[in-house]
Amino acid sequence: MRQIDVVGAVIQNEAGEVLCARRAQDAAQGGLWEFPGGKTEPGERPEESLRREIREELGCDIAVGEPVATAVYQYPAVTVRLMTYRARLVAGQPTPREHAELRWLPVADLGRLSWSPADLATVARLQAEAGGESPGRSSSPSS
Rank of each mutant, 00 (worst) to 15 (best):
E57F: 05
C60Q: 10
E48N: 06
Q74I: 10
P67N: 09
I62N: 02
Q74D: 07
D61N: 13
P46V: 02
L50N: 00
P67L: 06
L58Y: 13
R45F: 15
E48Y: 01
R45D: 15
E47P: 07
A63D: 15
G65V: 07
V72A: 07
C60I: 09
G59C: 11
T70W: 10
P67M: 07
E47W: 10
E56D: 11
A69F: 10
P67D: 05
T70D: 07
Q74F: 06
E53V: 02
P46T: 03
R55H: 10
L58R: 09
S49Y: 00
A71M: 04
S49E: 00
T70E: 08
L58D: 06
L58I: 14
G59F: 04
P46L: 03
R45E: 15
A71N: 07
E57N: 12
E44R: 01
I62V: 14
I54M: 06
E47L: 11
Y73E: 11
P67S: 08
E47T: 13
P46E: 04
E48C: 03
R45W: 14
I62G: 02
E53T: 02
A63E: 14
A71K: 05
P67K: 05
I54N: 02
R52H: 03
S49A: 08
E48V: 04
T70N: 07
I62E: 05
E66R: 15
D61P: 05
I62H: 05
L50D: 00
L50V: 08
Y73W: 13
V72L: 10
R51D: 01
L50G: 00
E53D: 13
G65D: 08
C60W: 09
R51G: 01
E53F: 01
T70A: 05
Y75I: 09
P67C: 12
E53C: 03
P46K: 03
V64M: 13
E66T: 13
V72C: 09
R52E: 01
L58P: 04
